[in-house]
């Protein structure tokens, strides 16, 4: 019997598989398809203090081995998430959920996290300082080590739950930012968000995405994500939730060898809504094939 369990700052997961924020809604669309309690956890749709409609459409463009999205943090706002989405989720998911929080100011990040602090369903806060699809916020906090540290300090001050900072790959040196978050008290790092990308429609000769640019994700970005997780693992002591292009059990093992304690699956859910369940079912077989008894023992094994 192989052991797939891992621990994120005291939050023990049956397995490291976590659907990534923005690809799994608040869970119940998928709960209609399979029992989502098989998941390690899942990261719910990026939530902000106020409700947001997001960006104009088209928000989606296909790419070779991936896709661009420019949703722009559409969400009902933290109050409705607490009053409507979490109670609905409770009916189909008995484990702790990861609350993904977006923001446009330090105050907003802190207030949203503070409101989620009292929610016992929330096991961990994933603070998104890396959304490429919103202006005057989002990614701007994640491209400057000082700002990243400031956000970390502010949210740490208002919550006792573990804080994982979700980092952007759209920076010169992601290691420097990860270290700044660790020094500021982050309990972990979540990485990577999408890569800023673009597609142009040859018929209209204009960008396909209404917002012109968007976040590129999908299998194509796996090597970039692996490299960055590997680099950050070398530089920090706190756990890493690794993501970026993961779509198979083999990819999960590779990501953990690079240094991830848990692994998020994003775009792959949109193509195959059953992918997380399938990966969880395939993991023991893949572990046996590669002589792995316990997944937690292989974290950072490639170093």
């Amino acid at each position: 019997m192989v052991d797939t369990s891992v621990s994120l700052s005291g939050l023990v997961l049956d397995n490291p598989i976590i659907p990534a924020s923005g690809t799994f809604g608040y869970g119940y669309e998928y709960a209609e398809l399979y029992d989502i309690n098989c998941l390690g956890s899942f990261s719910f749709k990026g939530t902000t203090r106020e409700a947001r409609f997001g960006n104009p459409t088209p928000r989606i463009a296909e790419c070779p081995a991936g896709m661009i999205n420019s949703v722009g943090l559409q969400n009902p706002g933290v109050e409705k998430v607490i009053s409507e989405e979490l109670p609905k989720l409770k009916e189909c998911f008995s484990k702790k959920v990861i609350a993904n929080v977006g923001g446009f100011s330090l105050d907003e990040y802190a207030e949203t996290c503070q409101m989620l602090e009292s929610q016992e369903q929330v096991g961990l806060l994933e603070v998104n300082i890396s959304c490429p699809n919103v202006h005057n916020g989002g990614m701007s906090f994640g491209t400057d080590p000082k700002m990243a540290a400031e956000v970390t300090k502010r949210v740490k001050a208002v919550t006792t739950k573990p804080i994982y900072i979700k980092l952007s790959p759209n920076v010169t040196d992601i290691v420097e930012i990860a270290k700044a978050c660790e020094d500021a008290g982050a309990d972990g790092i979540s990485m990577i968000n999408t890569l800023l990308g673009m597609r142009i429609d040859l018929k209209t000769k204009k960008p396909i995405i209404a917002n012109k640019m968007g976040g590129f994700s999908g299998s194509a970005i796996l090597p970039v994500a692996l490299r960055m997780v590997y680099q950050v693992y070398d530089a920090v002591k706190i756990p890493i939730i690794g993501m970026g292009g993961v779509s198979t059990a083999k990819d999960v093992i590779e990501m953990m060898l690079a240094g991830a304690t848990a692994v998020q699956i994003g775009a792959a859910n949109l193509i195959n809504p059953f992918v997380c369940k399938e990966i969880i079912e395939q993991l023991p077989e893949e572990m046996t094939k590669y002589n792995i008894n316990s997944l937690s023992e292989i974290i950072g094994g490639a170093h």
Partner: peptide, 10 residues
């Protein structure tokens, strides 16, 4: 996605 998860077509 086509099934309501990604908010791509709101």
């Amino acid at each position: 996605c086509g099934f309501g998860a990604c908010m791509g077509c709101s």
